[in-house]
Every structure is written in C-alpha cells, then in structure tokens.
Amino acid sequence: MKNDIKQTSILLFEKKGFSDTSIQDIVETVGVTKGTFYYYFISKEQLLMDIHMGYIDDLLERQGRIRQNQLSNRQKVEELVALLITDIADYGPNGKVFFREMRHLREDHVIQVKQKREKFRKNLEDIISKGIAQQEFRKELQPEIIAFAILGVTNWSYQWFNPSGEISADQLAHVYCDLIFNGIV
C-alpha cells in the first residue's frame, strides 16, 4: 500500500504539482482513507522526501554497480549517460518530481538530498579524473566542470525528452556520448 500511495503521488505531483495536489487527491485516487495515508507518511512533505530519497538512492546504487564494473573510464561514462537517459523512459515522472519539486522540502531535507546528488556528481568526477590519469581523456580537462556539463545535459532531458517520440533513449544516450567525446567539430 505504501508503494501504491507513493507511485500515485508521483503521477499526481507530475501532473498537478506538489502544491496543487492535496492529500485528499492522493487518497481518492488510490482508493484509501486519510488514516491509511497517515499510517505510512506523517505529512505530504515526508512523502515527497521519501520519493526524493528513493530516487537518488536508486541512482547511487546503480551508479555504484557501473563504477565497480571492469570497464574503461570512457565506457563507465557512457554507461552513466545511458543510465540517466534510459531512466527517463523507465521513471520519467519520478525524475520530473525529483528535479522540479525539491523546492517544497524542508531545509534539512534539501541538505540531505543535495548531499546525495553531490555524491553522484563526485563519483562521476572521479571516473573522469581516473580517465585523465590513465590517458583515456585529455589531460587539460577539468573533471568538476565536465561532470557538471554531463549532468546538465542529461538531467535537463527530463524537461523535453519523450521516450515514445522519434528518438529512443538509447539513441539519445548515443548522441550525448558522441557530443561529450567528440564535440561538434
């Protein structure tokens, strides 16, 4: 039931926004009472925090598996780009809520989410640094800036990418990797 409430809320938050979705909207859509909601969540904000933590923890876990693979650093970057883009196809509403609705979290919750987001970025930065050290990437690159750039390109895709549109998630990931590794010249 907790997962049903969470998944329904994600869809409602994506459609109506966090502020315009009431607990009543959630329980009516799920078909439960407010008591059931409050059994699992103490507030709508705590539900939003649960959504955020679940999302970033899942990304960190999957990123960790990529980092542990015996792949080149370039392949790891390619896998991470693919992870972030295919995630839109698999969990698009969740990602939209994650990026758009964080402003509704309490400050202490924002800090917790930002720490995990920073960990994800630092892990990517570490892969880039290792790639430079192992001469897979140009030595003059600035790993922090490159990590921000990769995350900026991939994360912004939540705003416009339609996985059932003309280009697939795999194709978009390939386009992004080509841009990252080869530029436009």
Rank of each mutant, 00 (worst) to 15 (best):
G31L: 01
E101P: 11
A169C: 13
I10G: 08
H174I: 13
R62F: 12
E107A: 09
Y91C: 01
E101H: 15
D170T: 14
A149M: 15
R106S: 14
S72W: 13
S164I: 12
Q70E: 15
G64D: 02
I5L: 06
H104A: 08
D87T: 07
L105V: 13
F41K: 06
F181K: 09
R103M: 12
Y55C: 08
I26R: 02
I56A: 05
A133R: 12
R121D: 04
S19K: 08
H109G: 11
A147T: 01
Q75H: 06
R74N: 13
R74Y: 08
I10L: 02
Y91H: 04
L151S: 06
L48N: 07
L47C: 02
R74M: 15
V110P: 02
S157M: 14
E14L: 06
Q134S: 03
I51T: 03
D25L: 02
I146D: 07
Y176S: 00
Y55M: 10
K2N: 01
L83A: 12
V153H: 08
F98C: 07
C177I: 08
V30P: 00
F161E: 14
D4T: 10
K76M: 11
Q63A: 11
Y39L: 08
T29Q: 03
V97S: 05
R67E: 13
T86E: 14
F99L: 15
L71C: 03
N155S: 15
V77R: 05
I132K: 07
V30C: 02
Q7V: 07
R65Y: 04
R100L: 13
Y39M: 05
E118F: 10
K122V: 02
Q159F: 12
N182G: 06
P163G: 00
E107N: 07
D108T: 10
H109C: 11
V113I: 09
V153C: 13
F148W: 09
E14D: 14
E118A: 06
R103D: 04
R121G: 06
M102I: 14
L83W: 10
I66P: 05
D170L: 14
I42A: 03
E166K: 09
I85W: 00
S22V: 09
L11R: 12
Q24A: 08
H52D: 00
F161D: 09
A147S: 08
F98P: 07
G17W: 05
K6M: 13
I180Y: 03
Q159D: 14
F120K: 08
R67F: 13
I146K: 10
Q75D: 15
V97I: 03
K96V: 10
D58L: 03
A89R: 05
L83F: 11
H109N: 10
G17Q: 06
V27A: 08
K96D: 01
E28Q: 10
I88G: 00
Q46F: 00
V27H: 02
Q171A: 15
N94H: 12
H104Q: 08
N73M: 14
F13E: 04
L151I: 03
S9T: 04
Q142V: 05
F99G: 06
K44Q: 09
L12A: 05
N155V: 08
W156T: 14
L151R: 12
A133F: 02
K2P: 00
R65P: 00
Q75M: 07
I132G: 03
